[in-house]
Amino acid sequence: MSDALLSTPVALAGAGLAAVLIGVAGHKIKKNDDSSLVPLMGVMGAFVFAAQMVNFSIPGTGSSGHIVGGVLLAALLGPWAGFLTLASVLIIQCLIFSDGGLMALGWNIINMGAMTTLIAYPLIYKPIARASTKPWRLAAASVAACVAGLELGAVMVTVETWLSGITALPFLGFLGLMSAIHLAIGLGEGIATSAVLVFVAKSRPDLLVPASAAVHSGKKGVKKAVIWFAVAALVVAGGLSFLASSDPDGLEWSIGRLTGGVELETAGNAIAEGAENIRQTTALMPDYESSFSGVVGAVMVVALVWAVCSVITSRRKKVTVKDEQA
């Protein structure tokens, strides 16, 4: 998800929801009271990051792919620790590698982190894999959980985009496109995740057992979390659809109540008329409609400021170089 496709209320709702989930994850880890988990989570995040940078070739397509790592982290650390680790990876990817955007970060954490570690892992991976280290079980659980997690993420992206109302793509068309793409990505992710888990099960099976039972929340805890998450999502979605409506926003509504119209009108006086005459005479493109003139005007203002700033910056650099030489 990118900042460009989100409206402010939707972005803030995502940030709030992600903050709540991160808070819950932190609380669960604190309750666990295992100091070895903190460095393990940090280094595991770095491992997923490093693994993401090494692409594998996709047979028959000539292209390559890499993992996201949600199910992998949940299988190795437990759902809440896995979620927090993946959230940190996404924060670093956003800040250092400029993936997504700061306002889209909340939803990216939910779409990629919560959907895989808090939904797909406990509800799909765990019932299939159980405590077994048999390769076929691990492979089936990984593929099913990754496909489900990524598909859920794709649905969430579609809903968030639709609620924001920035793109004109019809909801069902966008959903179909996203689901198809993420089905293929999920299959690749699942096979890659199972390849790592099978290797770990052969070499160090003890590592597949989570670090602590408290972080690996029980069936009841997970169910509770899923219910809370669903309720929160419904509340947020309901609230957002109201906010994303075509009605005026708060300030516009207030102005409308006060003046009878959404925009403030200029009072007709001699000064305003004079200013309008000057504008008409000096306008570069008086024949074009105001929206186009506005765009060109805005571009010119930014270009002018940029030019002035560039001159100042280059002069400052020259002065600094001279000072250094002196």
């Binding site: 693994a51 890659a192 790592v196 770990v200």
Partner: peptide
């Protein structure tokens, strides 16, 4: 890297990671 060798590569990296942690 094929998927199989990538799995072994990432698995090996993971085991080194745990040792380091």
């Amino acid at each position: 890297l094929t998927l199989k060798s990538w799995g072994e590569f990432a698995g090996q990296l993971f085991i080194r990671t745990v040792g380091r942690a």
